[in-house]
Every structure is written in structure tokens, then in C-alpha cells.
Amino acid sequence: MNATIFLEIGSGSGCVSAFAGKILDTSTLYLTTDINYRACNCTRRTGSQNNVTLDAIQTSFTQALHSRLKNSVDIICFNPPYVPTVSTEVSEAQDLRGIEGSWAGGSDGMQVTNIFLSVVHELLSFNGRFYLVALKENNIPEIQSRMKTLYQLESKIVLSRRAGREHLSIVRFKRALPGLS
């Protein structure tokens, strides 16, 4: 696949972006964001140990990049904090920018994810793809129908697997072609 710009939100250890860098061709700029400084540093080092240059940026979602990346990103990946928790735990975790922010997801585990779901359509290029990790409890059918109705992004579950007690899926979104479906 040809991708000029790859972007991962909440890159953490950096292993997803580094892996992407190994399977995509070399004509790609890899941008990663994370609110945690140590995660950004780790992302960068994981990249360099795998000979993939990852440009790590410490920011929330795509703040600071958003205006310049409109309709420009070919691949977006987001493994969000999807674990259902009490709602207050989310805001605390995000404000503290610590490790809890990597899992605490609020009442249906969607509190952080939903913020990004409302802007991702602005970032995708014409043929862009957005890959989201979701838990069964996040109500994937609801996410899919909402994204179609509100933002004309159609989607498909491309992989599902059980990891311990979590039923995990990868949902892939793309722009719906006008006139079809």
C-alpha cells in the first residue's frame, strides 16, 4: 500500500508504528502522538531500534497537527484507552498523563475514543484508512452505524480475537463513496 503520511494516536511503546514501518514501503512519514513524554521517548527508541524513523510528538490526539493534516493522512491507527471504568477515573487519568490514561475509558470504555471519532474524518485523505482497536463492551455495531451516519465513514471488522478476558477487534474505516450503498 502507498501511504505518504502515517499517524498513530497514543503510540505508547511505539511497537504498532514500528511494525507498520516494517511492512509499509519506505516512502512514508511516520508521525506519532502521545500525551506522555516517556511514551514519546519510548516510541522514538522503539522505532530507531527497528530502523524506522518515528517522529514522536507530545500532544493530545492531533492537537498542533490538526490544521496542517486535514484530508492528508493515509493511515491512522488508534489503540485507545478502551477499558470501561467509572467516568471520573478517565478525566483524572488523562489530566495526570500517567499510565492509567492508557486504559481508563469511562462508562462504556468510549469516553476518550469518542473525542477522536468526531474529528478523524477531517484528517483522512481521499483513500485514507483508519484502524481502531475496540473491545466488545464498546458496542462496535453502534460505533460503526454512528460513524456512517454522522461522518460517511464506512467500516469493517478486519480482525477479532480473544486476549485473556478481552474480546478485541480491529475496525477499519474509510470514506464511503458517494452514490453507493
Binding site: 512519514l29 508521525l31 522514538r44 517522529d55 510528538i57 492537537q63 498542533a64 497537527l65 490538526h66 490544521s67 496542517r68 493534516l69
Partner: peptide, 14 residues
């Protein structure tokens, strides 16, 4: 690192 390619994509968002 901030390479100039990345710097070219960053804007103030205050």
C-alpha cells in the same frame, strides 16, 4: 527529533 518536515506540520493551537 523535530525534523523540518514535521515542523512544517505544527501550528500553534492555543
Amino acid at each position: 527529533m523535530v525534523r523540518l518536515i514535521t515542523h512544517n506540520l505544527l501550528a500553534c493551537h492555543a
